[in-house]
Design a protein around this nucleic acid. Sequence first.
RNA 1: UGGGGUAUAGCCAAGUUGGUAAGGCAGCGGGUUUUGAUCCCGUCAUUCGCAGGUUCGAGUCCUGCUACCCCAGCCA
Length: 555
Amino acid sequence: MAETEHRPTNFIRQIVDKDLASGLHQSIKTRFPPEPNGFLHIGHAKSICLNFGIAEDYEGSCNLRFDDTNPVKEDISFVNSIKQDVHWLGFEWDGEARYSSDYFDQLHGFAVELIEKGLAYVDFSAQDKVREMRGTLTEPGTNSPYRDTDIETNKAEFAKMTAGEYGEGECSLRAKIDMASPFMCMRDPIIYRVKHADHHQTGNKWCVYPMYDFTHCISDAIEGITHSLCTLEFQDNRRLYDWVIENISIDCTPRQYEFSRLNLEYTVLSKRRLIQLVEDGHVSGWDDPRMPTIAGLRRRGYTPGSIREFCKRIGVTKMDNRVEMSMLEACIRDDLNVNAPRAMAVLNPIKLVIENYPQDSAETLTAPNHPNDESMGTRTISFSREVWIEAEDFRESANKKFKRLVLDKEVRLRNAYVVKANRVEKDEAGNVTTVFATYDADTLGKDPADGRKVKGVIHWVDAGSAQPAEFRLYDRLFNVPNPAGEDVFTDSINPESLKVVNGYVEAGLTDAIPESGGWQFERTGYFCLDTDSTTARPVFNQTVGLRDTWAKIGD
RNA sequence: UGGGGUAUAGCCAAGUUGGUAAGGCAGCGGGUUUUGAUCCCGUCAUUCGCAGGUUCGAGUCCUGCUACCCCAGCCA
């Protein structure tokens, strides 16, 4: 798509510029480090675009590293979906995907080094005791009775821990830092815990697993990461990040910089809540088109380019934010407006019978695939005596603001003739089911010769050849801008976030899927084929509607 | 006075030796239009969380407030 050409500028890129200019670094190395415990979402896309974007623009490289230090929460299926999503977004990681678990041996060695330096100890205090001794935000903690265990004993105990001689929760390895630190994470943080669990990468090799704070910085150093970018909640952790790097024998000092995570209105972007939506069946799965996941957006019809553009437009700062949905929608509209071929589809059909059109005959009309781009060519559409039109495009009477079909008035059938409504037929409930009309045969591709003006244009599909289809229309998943701020976030789920309607599309529409991934159904919106589609019955997802000033005015 | 952060329009966000508030989204007004779309034109912060101070001049410097976010998992 037509992404904004200029490179983004943000405080992190300014740091990179400075580090390159000063000679601190000759080249830049970043990494995207997801934990494989769920699907990627639009918030991850921000981090992906930042990390891979910097690597690209500065001719450095970016690793994909699975931060897999907690085997009980992680699964191989997630590593596969994450790889797929990063690729789909258009990025290529450097070499093979890495895993924190690749470094378990080295990590263990560094833990032993810390013990040998008197900077780590095995603590047998019960978990609640550890918490108690940690103190509070305003009171310092107290030292564990195991804090001064001698080095040899600690080495032996850690070896026993590692050998599986202790149960989960019985003991842990703690860094000896400062129980009175104003940074809670510096109050002798646990760096290794016992978990008798199989790991998706290392199997049953280990029963002790390193904690995030100990693992991440070392993994960065091992991979030669120059700029380790993470979100704001890790700002305090940076002190521990730096402490570990300074106290082990490794000659690389990656630096951590924090930016604010993305918040999007009317949805949730926390893994915990996304998991709940899936597990409690509020959505059909991780790739439900209403989900803010990459998989959901993809199925909804969002393009990789539109998501990259979105990440560019929202920028990178340290400010708390909640971005409006309209920002995301503008990005996909900008993309599809240029790239999606046009077509016609009628979602809530009523029949239009053109009484003065010859019975049992049809003609083939030519329609441009894009009104502003001749290079997209033309297609043929069938026209005959009976066509489907949108129920909401007809009224028996209306004021002049209604630019559609009205009894005794004329309207243009898009790419076809001008017709005039003469009478209607209704069902028992009083709904119009058929409109009888006459057409002006001399208006194909031109205005009426007598100079009368026909203001309105409506879309249609030929009833004789139309392909029946299902359309899924989506609205915001939640009724409030910040569902995470509610007591029970699922209470604010929008019960009308999905509407299924039946209708018709032009014959042969789905014979070829456009490069853009979808179509613009003129006057309606952008749609793509859903994975539930069959040849016999196509199912379309509305990616986003057209901008609609008429809807705002109402009538 | 625990500590760490952030405050520029409805939303996102530039603004970096102090020199007189970019851009995008949304909105509003108008033009073009066989999509109430697109496109085009115009409009949208005497003011940068608040209050003082320094200065010829402050969003940028100083002082004092205020608001909001994060930290007390053997999660990441």
